[in-house]
Design a protein around this nucleic acid. Structure first.
Length: 335
DNA sequence: ATATTTTGACCGGCG
DNA sequence: ACGCCGGTCAAAATA
């Protein structure tokens, strides 16, 4: 099994529509959405992210706050006290017609994804963050699988059962919150299906859109509005060791490769800010949600703070960048 | 029985 | 006024 042949190709947007922006200002236009884009890199090698992300240098016992807006909260169980991956799950379960398993599992490059999706996903489920994988970069691939999460356990992942089980238990929370799908549309612009989710918490206005490409790979996630509640308790429990703290703890430990194709902001108190470039094709859609939310607050208080506190932006974005993997053989993350 | 997903219909903004 | 398109609704299906 080619264990490290893929690249993540997902964009994460945060609806920053509350910002006062001049639509004629390109820079501002871009900033309407906080975008984190994971590219397969096939079509846009510029956006392939090369990161020296190594198990030994990343520590988190927080499995779920990673992608919570503004810190996404994939189910990521990273344990590095021993310098090895215990598990690292990106899972978005039961989204749409398939289970979107955000797992750091093996995923072929997009060129090889076509074909029997189920078979490929089954293969990919055999990921094992075992000793052999320790010296390889994490592959932040996304698996789209029709297989039930409970069947994900692979014989090889003997050392990861706990985290897998934990992941399953938390499958409903994905990014820490509960979502209910309320619609799906085929978006003409991109010809991709787009799913619409609402936070299931009573009166919570938060929504998110998840767009997938033809291979079922999530290409974009847009959050709208902010949660008016805290993260579900049982989720918080497992996330007690705040990933935010992790971010601050570890973001300075890594240096992105020079190949980093993000827009690097020159200022920000000497810190590196990497932003992925925003395709113009995405702007109309972003605009649309923005227009709906002129009066709304940003997607989360965290994000609002982010906007007001450049340092936070720096730390967050830089850290996320480390999680964007280029799995080219020659770029194994070694500096 | 309940919660969630699916999916066609509907609505409203925009050109 | 019309059609297109994205977003939402809601009944049915499914888990």
């Amino acid at each position: 099994m080619n264990s490290f042949g893929g690249r993540l190709n997902t964009r994460f947007y945060f609806d920053n529509s509350s910002r006062s922006l001049d639509s004629n200002d390109n820079k501002n236009e871009e900033r309407k959405w906080d975008l984190f884009e994971f590219k397969n890199g096939v079509e846009s090698p510029k956006q392939s992210f090369i990161t020296p992300f190594y198990t030994s240098s990343f520590t988190s016992t927080n499995p779920n706050q990673f992608l919570d807006p503004p810190f996404f909260s994939f189910n990521s169980n990273i344990i590095s006290s021993s310098g090895s991956y215990s598990d690292f799950h990106f899972k978005e379960e039961k989204a749409n017609d398939t289970n979107l398993n955000f797992q750091s599992q093996i995923w072929p490059t997009s060129s090889s994804i076509s074909g029997n999706k189920k078979e490929e996903s089954t293969k990919s489920q055999a990921l094992d963050w075992n000793v052999e994988s320790q010296q390889k970069p994490i592959d932040f691939s996304i698996e789209i699988s029709k297989t039930e999460p409970k069947s994900i356990q692979s014989p090889q992942s003997h050392s990861n059962f706990n985290s897998i089980q934990a992941t399953n238990e938390q499958s409903r929370y994905q990014d820490g919150y509960n979502w209910r799908k309320y619609g799906q549309k085929l978006i003409k612009r991109s010809n991709n299906p787009q799913s619409y989710y609402k936070c299931t918490y009573p009166n919570c206005p938060t929504k998110k859109k998840v767009e997938k490409d033809l291979n079922g790979i999530i290409t974009k996630i847009i959050y709208k509005e902010k949660h008016n509640h805290t993260m579900p308790t049982n989720f918080q429990k497992s996330s007690s060791n705040s990933f935010n703290n992790t971010i601050f703890e570890h973001s300075n430990r890594f240096q992105p490769y020079s190949e980093c194709s993000f827009i690097e902001h020159e200022q920000e108190q000497g810190s590196l800010i990497c932003e992925s470039r925003i395709d113009h094709e995405n702007e109309p859609e972003a605009k649309r949600w923005k227009l709906d939310e002129v009066e709304s607050e940003a997607i989360s208080s965290g994000l609002s703070k982010t906007l007001e506190e450049p340092r936070l932006v720096v730390e967050t974005k830089v850290t996320l960048i480390y999680l964007m993997m280029d799995t080219n053989g020659e770029n194994t993350g070694k500096k």
